[in-house]
Design a protein around this nucleic acid. Structure first.
Lengths: 229, 229
DNA sequence: AATAAAAAACAGACTGACCTGTTTTTATTT
DNA sequence: AAATAAAAACAGGTCAGTCTGTTTTTTATT
């Protein structure tokens, strides 16, 4: 019906016109409401009327912007990705991550992304994608669109000579963070996650030191210039 | 109404009577059907009529054994835990795990438990528990009932002098496996999990060697008697 | 042991509520 | 005036829980 969700949702809201701005604002409100609802009631109980009500708009307005529920869900994930981006920019700016110690970045990732309730929403979407193949394809597309940038950031962060091992390390950390998110959700009131995070940092520091070319034991915590050149 | 689910589901089906056996069989069929359905259509689309239909029983029979949907879900998790137990027994018997190398156990855990589609079902239940507090309490109770045995097994497996660090290591591995399960579900057709598993084994071996008292580099892969005594 | 009473297992239908997607109407912008 | 945005009502379908009735098994009684 309308253009794809991404076209409008991610388009920088420049001076395109009044209705475009109104439209973008409405989409944002709906996505925010949907995300809140998803966090609060869970994927299973999430309904389109409820999203509209929370956004304070009619169902008609909603269906105009998001024709189907799947469209709405894709919109939510795009919105989330946007939030993550903004959080990263707020923490590190657009700067090269070569100067950021691994533990600093990891703590940021847990605190601002994986440890937040909204990440559970993302997980629920991913699990829902398992059975709804069409939705899954669209969600994967959203996440794939940032995988390139993410790899680049990790490249700056770790700078393993062996890129294959670097990727392994990256995915391992990702799996760990996701697992921690689940643990935090299910066994709440449990401080084991903090300990696990610290333990992984400890291990990671050693691993990074081992993988890097001129390795000293604590090389990862004090970063130096990106490339000696 | 009837006794708790566990009483009947886990009670050894000895000569208690014809009715008890029939009941246990029916519960088993329903739980198996519910698990299958959960794996196939996902938590969101799981319905009670659909479970009954798959089990080939009437809805009346179903509601007799599981009055509410939540009862049914608790039953599924109990059933799953039972399956995991059986898989472990089939692989290692009831024997002490002190002789089992870590990598063997970890590979088993991935192959027979976390890497299976049914583990996603368990994850979906855990995520559903986030919003349904009452269900969550019951599910946690089911899983808590095995946490003692699990800790014992890991104690045999790892034998860290520092139990605190051992627990850390255990939870770290658990988080990793859960994260891998999600990755396998969402990004299927991806062999990165195997690599991550191997990488973790490699790291773990070193960690185990470091934590153990008389440590040689490869001490973890060739296990020796539980306690020198 | 035989029979009557009670309890448990099973079957099928019903209901009130709610959800998704669609269609029809009204308002706002260009 | 034309097109887009928003509102409101509608239609078809489904689900969870409940209820009534039937069959099978167990227990109590004589």
């Amino acid at each position: 019906m309308t253009g794809t969700a991404m076209d409008q949702a991610t388009r920088p809201e420049a001076a395109i016109g009044k209705q475009a701005r109104r439209s973008a604002e409405m989409r944002r409100r709906l996505c925010q409401a949907a995300l809140d609802a998803l966090c609060e009631v869970g994927y299973d109980s999430l309904t389109t009327p409820m999203i509209a009500a929370r956004a304070g708009v009619s169902r008609g307005a909603q269906t105009h912007h998001f024709a189907t529920k799947a469209d709405m869900l894709v919109g939510v994930l795009e919105y989330l990705v946007q939030i993550w981006d903004e959080a990263r920019l707020a923490a590190f700016g657009g700067k090269d991550l070569s100067d950021v110690p691994f533990d600093v970045y990891l703590r940021f990732a847990w605190r601002e992304i994986f440890g937040k309730p909204s990440y559970i929403a993302a997980l629920e979407l991913m699990l829902a994608a398992r059975v709804d193949k069409a939705l899954g394809e669209r969600l994967r597309q959203v996440l794939d669109s940032i995988v390139g940038d993410r790899n680049l950031r990790w490249r700056q962060l770790l700078r393993f000579p062996d890129v294959r091992r670097e990727e392994q390390f990256q995915y391992m950390t990702l799996c760990l963070l996701r697992g921690m998110a689940i643990h935090a959700s299910f066994n709440r009131g449990d401080d084991v996650n903090e300990a696990v995070l610290e333990a992984w940092i400890e291990i990671a520091d050693k691993l990074i030191a081992m993988e890097r070319p001129g390795a000293g034991a604590k090389s990862s915590r004090r970063a130096r210039k990106p490339v000696p050149r």
